[in-house]
Design a protein around this nucleic acid. Structure first.
Length: 430
RNA sequence: GGAACGAUGGCAGAGCGGCCAAAUGCAUCCGCCUUGAAAGCGGAAGGGUUCACGCCCCGGGGGUUCAAAUCCCUCUCGUUCCGCCA
């Protein structure tokens, strides 16, 4: 959520920042929020004034009783009763207004960073680095899509996954399953020097899913377990961000660095038919996420560091990759600044997004109410949050299958994964 | 799933419906004392909102009342016992 007070004090600035996202309807929402806020302020003042009068009268009642002046007490009570009725009406109006304002504010996206590049859509995302490790050409045996080669090798069995769970579920077998797990181990081990490993719940409440920004706007993208009012997490970002929800941290605790390997569940509503082959887009996949809760001053460096960490793991696997920055027109709604790492998969001839590292400024933390206290200052401040995929399994797995395919059809296992592969160095051709 | 009890400041823990933003202890911070420390003594210290006055916050929500931390309802969470169970 953006700060209502900012909207109050600098409406032009907020408009200008939001306009960079290129969605005119957002400006109407801003106007709506402003007018609700103005009415809310007025009503709140009137209500509080009435409450003050009621409180004063109540004191008079008590004092008069004590003094034995029952008439005075009676007079004050009657007056207070009348005021109370008006107060009730105003209070109800206040509650309605403030809920309406909240609903509007929850749907207004974050203001992009001044440093974020302008652009209308994904075609405008600037290349920041690379391509790295990209050969001039690929031999024919690497031009085989992973869903063909992996299925032939018996390490991918999507047909049976579909039998069990329906379309867009996948299943790895044998060394394919081992390699999927190895990738998670690698990503965890690569970041264990600075991030605390968490095994969070993978089902969360509605309140938790609202804090990170998935609700109310993107309810259709998440799996719901309605009977118990729970949601399957679309990313570990959700439980990790809420880990410190409704808490006030000491500045010394920041940055708090957390990482988790979890399953991620996505309905992928609206993406039917797009990238649905093989492991490119699935309802359930594994990912290692790294996340930081920080002070505003720490955040920029953390964004750089976390992007570098994600890059390092991809680079160590020997895959061809590039880094792009996300422009204002393509940014996620909670994002302030964002970088993607893409890996080239020669078999399907695509650059695959395998990691996204983002800075959310105080947008998520305000929703989740994560604050911190500076030792030298009174009061509290909203924290900043950042997160990124240290490694998302399916597309990296697919890229390894395609890039590392040998002339004989076997798959060479990247050296950095060997410690986790129970002695295997290749996935043998059948 | 059934039953009983509980939820108050960083922690522990008081709190006859008004004198309670809330005792007391511990912890924290600042002074005094001391060569230094401990002890002792004195003092400070919650959050939100507001330019301010003020208003709100004793797990969440609702109700009763002139007035609610205190009474009633409800939800959530916790503890213990029973049942079931990886």
């Amino acid at each position: 959520m953006i700060d209502v007070r900012l909207l109050r004090t600098d409406p032009a600035g907020v408009r200008a920042a939001l306009a960079r996202r290129g969605k005119p309807e957002l400006l109407e929402q801003l106007d709506h929020a402003s007018s609700l806020d103005a009415r809310l302020l007025k009503i709140t003042g009137e209500r509080d004034d009435l409450r003050r009068q009621v409180n004063e009268l109540s004191k008079i009642v008590g004092q008069s009783r004590k003094a034995g002046d029952m008439t005075a007490a009676e007079v004050a009570m009657t007056e207070s009763r009348d005021l109370g009725e008006t107060e009730r009406v105003l209070a109800a109006e206040h509650d309605e207004l403030s809920e309406a304002l909240r609903q509007v504010m929850l749907r207004i996206p974050n203001l992009p960073s001044p440093d974020a590049p302008d652009g209308a859509g994904e075609d405008d995302n600037p290349l920041v680095k690379g391509p790295v490790n990209l050969p001039n050409s690929f031999p024919d045996h690497q031009r085989v899509p992973h869903w063909e080669s992996a299925t032939a090798l018996g390490i991918l069995d999507n047909e049976r996954a579909t039998k069990i769970s329906g379309a867009m579920f996948t299943m790895q077998r044998g060394l394919g399953a081992t390699m999927a797990r190895a990738l998670c181990q690698l990503a965890l081990d690569n970041n264990a020097d600075a991030f605390e490993e968490i095994r969070p719940p993978q089902m969360v409440t509605t309140a938790t899913l609202t804090a990170t920004g998935q609700l109310p706007k993107f309810a259709d993208d998440a799996f719901a377990i309605e009977r118990d009012d729970l949601w399957a997490i679309p990313t570990a970002e959700v439980p990790l961000t809420s880990l410190y929800a409704n808490e006030i941290l000491d500045e010394a605790q920041l940055p708090a660095r957390l990482m988790a390997h979890t399953s991620c569940f996505r309905r992928e509503a609206g993406s039917a038919g797009r990238d649905t082959r093989g492991m490119l887009r699935t309802h359930e996949f594994d990912k290692v996420e790294i996340l930081a809760v920080a002070t505003p001053e720490q955040a920029a460096d953390l964004l750089t560091e976390m992007t570098a960490r994600a890059e390092r793991t991809i680079a160590s696997l020997g895959l061809p990759y590039r880094i792009i920055e996300i422009c204002t027109g393509d940014m996620g709604q909670s994002h302030y600044r964002s970088f993607d790492i893409e890996v080239y998969a020669p078999g399907c001839d695509k650059w695959l997004e395998v990691s996204s590292v983002s800075w959310f400024s105080d947008y998520q933390a305000r929703r989740a109410d994560i604050r911190f206290r500076r030792p030298d200052k009174k009061g509290t401040e909203i924290a900043h949050t950042l997160n990124g995929s240290a490694l998302a399994v399916p597309r990296v797995w697919a890229a390894i299958i395609e890039n590392n395919r040998q002339a004989d059809g076997s798959i060479r296992i990247p050296d950095v994964l060997l410690p986790y592969m129970r002695g295997a160095t290749v996935i043998p051709a059948t």
